[in-house]
Design a protein around this nucleic acid. Structure first.
Lengths: 148, 148
DNA sequence: GTCCGGGTTCGAGTGCACTCGAAGTCAAGT
DNA sequence: ACTTGACTTCGAGTGCACTCGAACCCGGAC
């Protein structure tokens, strides 16, 4: 059997798992838990994902990996399922998350700085030249621009 | 009773909890789990933290909040407790973590971009002017420099 | 001398996000 | 007809990092 759903009515769970990096178990779990917008079935009762579902899963992945809890994603999914009329609420939810992510990003950057410093310390103690340490020192001094 | 340990022999667990933002429960848990370097006790058997302990807890917090698992912090603490001679191994551990944090930071930044985009989309749909969206658009165009 | 607040140890409980196993179905291949 | 393998649902189990409760102790205030 190919992993393709018959009569080309969509993507099988195995295909979606491969493309998204999630497991089939996790995809079913998300659906059970109300995170999906409604996944269709084919003649044999197998899930048939659309390209739109793929995009939605990508969004879920972004939200999850930036720390949004499952239950908040579920709330968002519920709003989307309800259809037009609650855009303001969706916007508020997304903005709140965006603000958290921004803060988290800054905090992580600060922690990273401290960790870099410690690495430099050990590199010096070990007598090994840390190529990164010198680069960072240059950036701090303004000798070179920070990358990206 | 003040929360200060008697005869000024160090900081009480309550003081450390307040200063670090961790709970007393968590501080005991970290010690039990081998994350600390050896916390002293006073005459009554109460923990008496030093300023050095404070610094170490700060490091643990940074490592934890950047995603280092407890057991890896324990490994690091063990090496520090073993004393001089394993600096190269400590360095390797820190570098590996640093690399993960760098990667994580980039990934989060990318996800944030996508979320910002979605916020702009909804802001436009709602007909509300998103002050941030315009700023970001300017940055993308190069009209203004990105902050910080 | 009794009370009280805050400390102590030990072990069990919680919340989150998966992760897995069991038992059954279904369509295609031989 | 039978086997195979990927799917289905359902519910239970796992790993991580705390988090909490119970039972006890100890030093200072009243």
């Amino acid at each position: 059997m190919t992993t393709q759903t018959h009569s080309n009515g969509g993507l099988s769970i195995a295909e979606v798992a491969e493309r998204t990096g999630l497991t089939a178990h996790t995809l079913r779990y998300y659906e059970r838990d109300g995170l999906m917008l409604g996944v269709g079935r084919n003649g044999s009762g197998h899930r048939a994902y659309t390209e739109g579902d793929l995009g939605w899963i990508t969004l879920i992945t972004r939200l999850r990996s930036t720390g949004m809890p499952i239950r908040e994603i579920r709330r968002y999914a519920e709003m989307v399922r309800e259809g037009a009329g609650n855009e303001e609420e969706r916007l508020a939810l997304l903005r709140a998350h965006r603000d958290r992510v921004r803060a988290q990003l800054e905090e992580t950057a600060a922690h990273l700085d401290a960790i870099e410093f410690k690495v430099s310390y050990y590199a010096a103690a070990v007598g090994e030249t840390d190529p990164d340490a010198e680069l960072i020192a240059q950036q701090r001094r303004g000798d070179v621009a920070a990358p990206r």
